[in-house]
């Protein structure tokens, strides 16, 4: 009788230990998929700017720039340009004009980043008050 109880308890403990170990292993080894788009928030004297790059990679990247004024209303700009630069390599890649897609929303379908590394995407906002500029550092790992 006692030995049966002891045996059952031992099985229970073993199962519990295995469950804890399996849980820990799962937690550590859980595959890390795409972290999603890189969204960065910045601003200039006149505008709030949000830049979205869908999973930045070496090659062509779609870039979206959302621009609002300081009160949060969508801003209407004459032109929005994205100039990619690798500051520590001294590389400048071809600038791309973003096309207006909606109120305060500008999209550059294909921004070419020729290699992986740390890039600075300089966003030029040509508006009624002149040209504002801000830079977004992004890390391209793939």
């Amino acid at each position: 009788m006692t030995s049966t109880v002891d045996g059952r308890r031992r099985t229970l403990w073993t199962a519990a230990c295995l469950a804890v170990l399996a849980g820990a292993a799962l937690w550590l080894l859980w595959p890390r998929g795409d972290t999603g788009p890189t969204v960065l928030r910045g601003g200039t004297t006149h505008y709030r700017v949000q830049l979205t790059v869908d999973a930045p990679r070496a090659g062509a990247n779609p870039v979206t720039v959302n621009v609002t004024d300081l009160q949060g209303r969508p801003a209407t700009l004459r032109k929005v340009t994205v100039e990619p630069v690798m500051p520590n390599m001294g590389h400048a890649a071809e600038p791309v004009d973003a096309v207006a897609e909606g109120p305060g929303r500008y999209r550059a379908g294909s921004l070419s980043l020729p290699m992986s590394g740390t890039w600075a995407l300089n966003v030029l906002l040509h508006g009624p008050t002149g040209t504002d500029q801000t830079a977004f550092p992004i890390l391209v790992t793939r």
Binding site: T38, R41, G42, R48, L70, D132, T134
Partner: peptide, 15 residues
């Protein structure tokens, strides 16, 4: 002057 990935409700960079 720094950009951030988080929306923190603070005044935007540049102001």
């Amino acid at each position: 002057t720094g950009v951030s990935a988080r929306a923190d409700g603070l005044p935007p960079a540049g102001s």
